[in-house]
Simulated scan of single mutants.
Amino acid sequence: MQARDVMVSPVITVTKSATVRDVARTMLEKRISAVPVVDDADKVIGIVTESDMLHRVEAGTERRDPWWVRFLAGETAIAAEYAKSHARHVADVMTTEVISATPETPLHEVATLLEERAIKRVPIVNKAGELVGIVSRANLIQAVASARPKLAMHLPDSTIRQRLLDDLKKQSWAHPHSLNAVVTNGTVDLWGFVDSDKERKAIRVAAENIPGVVSVNDHLMIKPVLVY
């Protein structure tokens, strides 16, 4: 799947001249946690998130760090924090370094972006740089919940066994030479030795995902550690 398959579109946006109060109201009314900021050409120039609203003078939540923290931070950082907590317009509170993706970006890459950058959503832009959608962590969860189970297939036991062994040979973590699989009427019995419980679980999951498998019996054992 690609970003285009799960993205929300059209996207609720604001301009940099909007007030912080207006953005806060929009987020509450639309039940969203972020609002992209666009220019006249509908290109993303920033984004306002819940995090940008945490420390605000209106709510009495502006930062009140100890003197030594302020001393270490320096006057420039303190000035920037003051502007963000007291500013009236979006241009002064928005995050300008926006991480984005394209409609063709594979979902696994979007998931990696969200995880590695510790962000909750990614604006989706086309080749012209125009905002066309947004993908959040919730949208990825929706994709999982909406996934349709594979149609049941009745494959010969020998085919199931061979497909499982072939799949395991492609995995760097598996050690097929230490494994054996016996398939009877769609039930897979796993035998052999593994290095860890995680490898054991992965092998069981691999077997469960082979079309035609009815159930899996795990007889795998962890290799004993030699003392000498």
Rank of each mutant, 00 (worst) to 15 (best):
G74T: 03
T26K: 07
A59Y: 14
V132R: 07
V35P: 02
S51M: 06
A143G: 06
H55V: 01
D65E: 15
L226C: 08
Y228L: 14
V225R: 14
T112V: 05
D52E: 13
A118F: 11
S172V: 13
A207R: 07
V8C: 02
A73N: 09
R121K: 07
D39S: 04
R148A: 14
R31H: 13
A18M: 05
A24V: 15
A3S: 07
L155Y: 10
A152R: 08
I160F: 00
S172Q: 07
L28M: 14
T105M: 09
D189W: 02
K16W: 03
T13R: 02
T102L: 00
R163I: 11
G60F: 09
D5P: 00
H175K: 13
N209E: 15
I141F: 14
F71M: 15
V44Y: 08
T187E: 13
L220I: 11
Q142G: 05
V69E: 09
E116T: 15
P224K: 04
V44M: 01
M1A: 11
E62D: 09
A181F: 04
R63P: 03
K170M: 11
D42A: 09
D40R: 15
Y82R: 11
G133N: 08
V20K: 08
V122A: 04
I203H: 04
V8Q: 09
G74N: 06
K120Q: 08
S33Y: 03
G192N: 02
I222M: 08
M221E: 15
V14S: 03
S136F: 08
V135I: 12
H154Y: 07
R56T: 15
E130Y: 00
G74Y: 05
I134G: 03
T187G: 01
L179K: 00
L113V: 11
A79M: 05
M153W: 11
